[in-house]
């Protein structure tokens, strides 16, 4: 019983979620707002951050928090690759080396 109605229910739910998210985009169901964040950045970007490239102004000043943790993601992935491709841990603890004796 549940298996039969599960798929149509899911489709109906997805359609509702799609329509609901559509209503948030300005210009489709709502009228467009007077000013967006882009206008604010264009207007005040240079005087706030003293950067002529507004992309750099957003990345390095307004959203610096995000940029720092984006760098953290790269650090974690590099650490993962290094862990996978080094000598296995057992050999390392036996010899006490730092992974220089790769074959």
């Amino acid at each position: 019983m549940i298996k039969k109605i599960r798929t149509p229910l899911l489709i109906i739910m997805l359609i509702f979620i799609f329509l609901f998210s559509l209503s948030g985009i300005p210009g489709i169901l709502e009228e467009e707002p007077d000013s967006t964040i882009g206008d604010l950045v264009i207007e005040r970007g240079y005087s706030d951050t003293s950067s002529k490239n507004l992309v750099a102004a957003i990345l390095l000043d307004y959203r610096l928090f995000d940029s720092v943790f984006e760098a953290a993601i790269l650090l974690i992935s590099a650490a993962g690759v290094l862990y996978m491709t080094r000598l296995p841990l057992k050999d390392k603890t036996m010899k006490g080396g730092k992974g220089n004796e790769r074959q």
């Binding site: 951050t49 003293s50 950067s51 000043d61 610096l64 650090l75 992935s77 590099a78 290094l82 491709t85």
Partner: peptide, 23 residues
């Protein structure tokens, strides 16, 4: 901004270099 760009640039280049050197 210049110092921040330098730090991010060297960090990203060393990270990617590490990844594909190991690969």
């Amino acid at each position: 901004l210049v110092i921040l760009n330098l730090a991010i640039g060297i960090k990203v280049s060393s990270g990617l270099t590490l990844i594909f050197t190991q690969f």
